[in-house]
Design a binder for these strands. Sequence first.
DNA 1: TGCCACTTGCAAATAGCTTGCAGTACTTCA
DNA 2: TGAAGTACTGCAAGCTATTTGCAAGTGGCA
Lengths: 137, 137
Amino acid sequence: MIERANELRQRGLRLTPQRELVLRAVRELGHATPEEVAESVRKSHPGINLSTIYRNLETLENVGLVKHAHLGHGGATYHAADEAGHLHLVCEDCGSVGDAPLESAANFVANLIGDYGFETDVTHFAIYGTCANCSKK
Amino acid sequence: MIERANELRQRGLRLTPQRELVLRAVRELGHATPEEVAESVRKSHPGINLSTIYRNLETLENVGLVKHAHLGHGGATYHAADEAGHLHLVCEDCGSVGDAPLESAANFVANLIGDYGFETDVTHFAIYGTCANCSKK
DNA sequence: TGCCACTTGCAAATAGCTTGCAGTACTTCA
DNA sequence: TGAAGTACTGCAAGCTATTTGCAAGTGGCA
Ligand SMILES: [Mn+2]
Ligand SMILES: [Mn+2]
Ligand SMILES: [Zn+2]
Ligand SMILES: [Zn+2]
């Protein structure tokens, strides 16, 4: 369910079955590409079109229910907005995606504000590098 | 000139006019997309094909003369390898790209190694946020 | 119940990048 | 220096991810 269905209606937007399915899929999947969202949604609603997925992800993001992040060289992935508050540690070797709390970066963020007045959103792009496993080899 | 033309030949690669033009363009432009490199190169060599640009960027990256980074939602941008050692502060509002020294992140990088054994390359993806100018508004 | 702006599915278009191929041009080695 | 081998290039076609136009469908309020 979308608790904030109001947020949609207040903007003149509607709560369609497709829109709700897209949101549910994003919530269940954690980090999902549009393609993965489509695959998930189609289990219960096979006819849904990819363009509908893209349009709804955009709409849900505008309303603030969903956010996107960039975890690799390719396209974006989507999160539920309320679980978006973590870093993504992406391994360039094995491709694994680890999470880390925002506090790991608190210091860094403070540096950039102090030195450049730059307010960082550390969650939007991946933190790229080599994971512990791959470093050993 | 490519001082390390040897590095190419040692690998059985050749130093063609196109390859040299691509490297020169990357060096002059600072942060350039393949499309921008093409545009620049075509000023003196109009016939050069985009696929030649892509293939040479890849080759030059394999040899270690250029590197790519991801500064926005779209494609990659290329640097000369020797000026790649800095953070990219990308403003989500105005799109400006500021540079910051690696030291700004030294602390952060140390945290991630300590806590997760994760070795970060902070230069590969942009640091995303709001620049000083845009924050004021 | 009826209207109407918002949505959807579908097809076509676009953007960015990659690949196959045949001709060109370096390099190496008699 | 000429032949042979391999790298490189331009061009056209192909791909993948995403966007757009449009006509038909529908949620939500009167
Ligand atoms: Mn990359
Ligand atoms: Mn983004
Ligand atoms: Zn790894
Ligand atoms: Zn800005």
